[in-house]
Every structure is written in structure tokens, then in C-alpha cells.
Design a protein around this nucleic acid. Structure first.
Lengths: 202, 202
DNA sequence: CGTAAACCGGACCCAGGGTCCGTATTCTGG
DNA sequence: CCAGAATACGGACCCTGGGTCCGGTTTACG
């Protein structure tokens, strides 16, 4: 077996760092002014350790993010309806997007930090690819819907962390209202236009 | 009058800096690795001058951006149809959003730089407020459309610089195709669902 | 146990944004 | 046209914060 089993102090420290970072983000400090040194000291660990474990700042953020994302991914891939695969496309798209939105609402600060911290566009991130791919696939099962690729992007764009933060954070719009509005928006996209081509656009 | 008419070397240098920055961004260097020192030297000017004129990096970007945005703003506020005020809401929304998209397509690198360069969420930027406000106002003139505020945000989100860059830049989707897809998307939102509630969803 | 590999941590490096201040330029009034 | 004040110039300098390095320590394994 190629894997040598990592040393236990290494794992312990990795956990410590994750926990520390979590804690720091919870303490509503604006993601921007949480320095790597902060995280290290909060975790009771040296900077070297931190960087060896996660590579760089973006790596740390990613690790945190994916840890939190994991449960949801499983629910989507093999869970019960409405998220799981055994749901009719229409409803599943709605459920999927609502889930993403809720996730962003619950993890605003982290998601924000991730998108901000340079690391290139979010569109290269692996998890984005996953969501987009999945969503696109489901969208394309809906009759009368074209451009699944673009549509998936456009819908996901409405759940961008900074937008969510703006709505829920700055404008203080209550969570349920944001969800309702977004659901409404999604529905408009899903429900095909009037049956016969009686509505403009030639 | 409080304004003291600035010295001519000051204005000259301001122009020089703007031009230099423009040039640098044209030279497709990834916005991230254009340093303030670069801009200064390209403009044949000291860093001090540059910072006095624009405050900070974000200030410079903003100045550039708004300069390029100006023509469009006028076209929207008082120009001829389809952008101007004398257009029926439905068509105007489409035109507006297409214009924004085109702008982003034409100024990808700059728009990207602006969104990336920290400076807080784009949602606090003044020009965003303007677009959003305008769009919302027009949207609310369309019968059967609720949540103008949210809808405006969501639609604009689909024109985010990094998304546009991803589509047109990475995925090499031709300009006209992106426009068409987006137009399609917008239309789906504008056209209210089927007249009678005859389409699924209960 | 003994040894080598893996890990630790904090001193250190460096880029880049932003500031400072002595000097040069421009404006104003006489 | 000149003196003096106000303003701008520019590059040396500061400082934060991400990322690296290496001597010393801990752990895994035979």
C-alpha cells in the first residue's frame, strides 16, 4: 500500500486547525482580516504546520468548505427525495437550488471568504463544477428547456455568496423571504412559456 | 465655490495614468499581476502621484470603469430606443440587460479586475446600485411580475464578470451565442407563466 | 530500543499596497 | 516680471501578510 499512514500528531493538528478556523469564522470577523497567523495561533500551532497541511490560504478555505459541503453532496447523490435521484426533474431542480441557497445562507461568511480570497474565479473550483454538472444534467431532462449549460450557470449565479450576503446581511431580508423569492425565480425559468408560441419572440 | 481648479500638471498626470492603466489592461496581463508600481512607471509618474490622484487601487479601477461606463449610462438615461426611456418595459429590460452583458464582454479584464480587487462586494459599488435601481424600476412596470428587487439582482448576477469570463474566455463560447442564451433566459423570466394555471406544479 | 523519516514551529523572506517629505512646479498678487 | 505661498512630484521607505526554511523534536517501524 502506497499510503504510509500519517503520523497522529499530524492528524491532530490538522483537526485543530480546522476547528480553529471554524471558530474564527463563526466570530463574525470579516473574512478578509483573519490572517493565516491568526488561525495558526488560535489552533496553537506554528505557521509552518498550517501551510504544510493545507498548502495555502485557498487550500484551507477549500478544505473547510468541502467538509461542510459533504453531507449535502451525499444527500444529493443518493439520498431520499426531494434531493435524491428518485425525484422528477422539475421538483429536483427546485430542491437542489433551494438546498444550495440554504447552504450559502448558513455558511455565508465561509463562502464569502472562499470566493474573495483570490484563488481565481469560483468557476474553476471543483465543487462548482460538480454542482453545475449535476444541475445541467437534471435541467436537460426537462422538456422544452434548452441551453442547460448556460441556464445552470445563470441560476447558480443567483446564489453567489456575496449576493446572498447582501440580501440577508445588509438588507436584512429574512431567510424565508429570500428562499421564497428565489424559488419563484426558479419556477419562472422552469415552467416553459405559454404552450403555443403565442408570446412574442416571433 | 469650493473647488479650486486643479493644477495642469495634475490633470495631465491623471490622464496619463488612466491611459497607462488602460494600456496595461489591454495587454491581456491577468489583472492580478498588474501592480500599482507598474501603472505608475508605465505612466511615467511616481507612486505618490498615482495614489494622490486615485486614493487607492480600488479607486483607480473605479475611475477607469466609470469612464468607460459613461456613454452607456447616457444612452440609457436619455438616449433613443431601445435603451432610452421611451421603450415599453418588456423590451427595455431585454435591451438593458443585453447592453450590460455586451459591456462586460467588451471590458472583461477590467470588470474582472474591479470585482476581484477586494474593495468589498460589488453590491456596494455605486454603479451597481444604479443599474439595479433602474432595472428594478423597469421590471416593476411589467404586469404579473413581483419581487422586482430580487429579480433585478438575480438577472444581473448572470452578467457577473467572472461568469462572463468563464463562458467567453475559458469555454470559448462565441459572443453571439452567449448573448442569445442570455436573452432567452431573460425572456423566460419576463414572459409570465401560462395564462391559466395549466402547467404542472400542482 | 535505535534509527530514519516525518513533523514541528517560529524566525525569516519578499512582494506589493500605501505613506512621507524634501524638492520642483505652478498659481496669484503686486 | 518677481516673490511667496500653495500644490504637486516622485521615489525612498514602512508594514502587513502570505509563504518558505531549517535546526530540533516526535513518531513509526524493525
Amino acid at each position: 500500500m502506497p499510503e504510509r499512514k500519517s503520523r497522529k500528531d499530524a492528524v491532530r493538528n490538522r483537526e485543530a486547525v480546522l476547528a480553529a478556523a471554524d471558530a474564527l469564522f463563526a466570530r463574525r470577523e470579516s473574512s478578509a482580516d483573519i490572517t493565516m497567523a491568526d488561525v495558526a495561533s488560535e489552533a496553537g500551532v506554528g505557521k509552518g504546520t498550517l501551510f504544510r497541511a493545507f498548502g495555502d490560504r485557498a487550500g484551507l478555505l477549500r478544505a473547510l468548505y468541502e467538509a461542510r459541503l459533504e453531507p449535502m453532496r451525499q444527500a444529493v447523490e443518493a439520498g431520499p427525495p426531494p434531493l435524491g435521484p428518485a425525484t422528477p426533474p422539475q421538483d429536483r431542480v427546485t430542491a437542489l437550488l433551494d438546498a444550495v441557497l440554504c447552504f450559502k445562507l448558513d455558511n455565508r461568511r465561509l463562502a464569502l471568504a472562499l470566493e474573495e480570497s483570490g484563488s481565481g474565479s469560483p468557476y474553476q473550483a471543483e465543487h462548482y463544477e460538480q454542482w453545475h454538472g449535476m444541475l445541467q444534467a437534471v435541467l436537460e431532462q426537462i422538456p422544452g428547456l434548452t441551453d442547460g449549460d448556460f441556464t445552470a450557470h445563470a441560476l447558480l449565479a443567483a446564489t453567489r455568496a456575496d449576493l446572498v450576503e447582501h440580501l440577508a446581511g445588509e438588507e436584512r431580508i429574512p431567510r424565508e423571504r429570500v428562499r421564497a423569492q428565489f424559488a419563484n425565480f426558479v419556477t419562472r425559468i422552469l415552467v416553459p412559456g405559454p404552450p403555443q408560441g403565442l408570446t412574442a419572440t416571433e
